[in-house]
């Protein structure tokens, strides 16, 4: 047996891969194929479905009809990925470098929400963001917010929900990447005159903070200029006092592989998500996932639903391919450090 395995060295890897391959064949590839076939169907549940390659027009019809939903999905997912990154990065950085003996506890707390059902967590956000909930209610009570102010059933709520639900998917890969950064490299950078990053941090932080809060203000429909100024001030403050040159030149570039992975892990599921839009949004915040869910389960319009799903998959693949090409991690780190 030993010599047999040695001579045929492909046997062991194949044996190890077989369960996984079978699983994917039966539970992923087969249903996907079924759905792909369904996307070329025509008919209704009552009259029965007929397959024909001529029905490729299902695709342009479906995509054309629901283009705004695709666009909204991309915008929401991108915005949520961005905010997830802004929250997760400092969190992962703190755990990796300042966690000390609380490291494991903090990591546990990051994944602790997973112990509660996804649905339940999203519903509880409905309560948190509610018009008379624990945040908005008191603020309205003391007059900080106008009486007609609400977050629930706005794009903000949907993006906040996605951000919250996918936070661990960004935090963990970024943490892993940061954890691997050798602190001696940071010492080497400091030895080579990398000090505080004051002017650069002020400008970069100011622009980033200003732009982000400005957009936020626009989406909110409040005075975006005031928001932008607040954001710029905060970003500039953080950049001036907290960001060092060794971080910008060494730590951050070396953590980009984690940011890259975290970005994918957040963006891809977020684009197909429908729970957050369903529970925290309103009909005008529906994402493509809501449409697909509705077509499949309520209207029984399998051909359109399948065509929408496959169009989305193709779109995501293209986006990811471009993302990987443009931000291929190695070139990315070098470019970031060079800039």
């Amino acid at each position: 047996m030993g010599t047999f395995l040695k001579r045929h060295h492909w046997v062991t890897p194949l044996a190890l891969l077989t369960p996984g391959i079978l699983w994917l064949l039966v539970f992923y590839l087969w249903p996907a194929l079924q759905m792909f076939i369904a996307s070329f169907w025509h008919g209704t549940l009552e009259t029965g479905f007929v397959f024909s390659l001529d029905n490729w027009t299902n695709y342009p019809d479906a995509v054309g009809q629901f283009a705004p939903f695709y666009l909204r999905s991309v915008v929401y997912a991108a915005a949520a990925t961005m905010t997830t990154f802004l929250i997760a990065y400092p969190l992962a950085y703190t755990i990796a470098f300042k966690g000390g003996r609380f490291k494991n506890l903090m990591l546990f707390l990051v994944v602790a929400p997973f112990f509660t059902s996804f649905l339940l967590r999203t519903i509880s956000w409905k309560i948190i963001l509610g018009d008379v909930g624990p945040i908005i209610g008191p603020l309205k009570g003391i007059g900080v917010l106008p009486q007609d102010f609400h977050i629930l059933a706005t794009p903000m709520a949907v993006i906040a929900g996605i951000t919250y639900n996918f936070l661990p998917f960004m935090t963990l890969p970024v943490y892993v990447a940061l954890e691997k950064v050798d602190v001696r490299l940071v010492e080497a950078a400091k030895d080579l005159y990398a000090g505080p990053w004051r002017p650069g941090g002020l400008i970069a932080g100011g622009i980033l903070g200003g732009a982000l809060m400005g957009v936020l203000g626009l989406v909110f429909g409040v005075d975006w200029a005031v928001f932008a100024v607040i954001g710029a001030a905060f970003g500039g403050f953080v950049g001036w006092f907290l960001v060092s040159e060794s971080f910008i030149r060494v730590t951050f570039p070396l953590s980009l592989s984690g940011v890259f992975a975290g970005g994918l892990l957040t963006f891809i599921p977020a684009i197909g998500d429908y729970i957050n839009a369903e529970l925290l949004g309103n009909p005008s915040t529906n994402m493509i996932g809501n449409v697909i869910q509705n077509k499949f389960l309520t209207q029984n319009d399998y051909p359109t639903a399948s065509a929408l799903s496959f169009a989305m998959m193709a779109g995501v693949l293209v986006v990811v391919a471009i993302y990987a090409k443009v931000l291929g991690t190695e070139e990315l780190s070098a470019a970031a450090a060079r800039a």
Binding site: L185, K190, D191, G195, L254, E330
Partner: peptide, 18 residues
């Protein structure tokens, strides 16, 4: 360190891999 006119050759070299 960045304000001192000294430089260090580290034990593991600590070259920036990127």
């Amino acid at each position: 360190p960045y304000k001192r006119n000294v430089n260090t050759v580290f034990q593991n070299y600590a070259l920036f891999p990127h």
